[in-house]
């Protein structure tokens, strides 16, 4: 089973890297982009015999304790397979 964890900054937290991406896109002539936010994608390969509920609970625990800093970040978890 694969877990895909998408970690991104909470709304309202300034994102200097997102701002730089937005600036670069504008300087390249891509108009129509209102904002850019940068996050990260973490992929985990889990034991195949784990059931989805257990896997989700465990990955959620991993997110809260290590993978995301919930002071500034939020996360979503997608399980596959």
């Amino acid at each position: 089973m694969k877990a895909r964890i998408h970690v991104s900054l909470k709304p309202g937290v300034l994102d200097p890297q997102g701002k730089a991406i937005l600036g670069a896109l504008e300087s390249m002539g891509f108009d129509g982009v209102q904002d850019a936010r940068q996050g990260k994608l973490i992929e985990l390969d889990l034991d195949d015999d784990t059931d989805a509920d257990t896997a989700r609970a465990r990955v959620d625990d991993m997110c809260r304790r290590l993978l995301a800093n919930t002071v500034i970040e939020k996360y979503t978890i997608d399980l596959e397979g």
Partner: peptide, 17 residues
């Protein structure tokens, strides 16, 4: 210390990167 929660807040990438 911020990551442990012993101090509040967080430290992010510098404004000018």
């Amino acid at each position: 210390l911020c990551e442990t929660g012993l101090l509040p807040g967080a430290l992010m990438r510098n404004r000018d990167l």
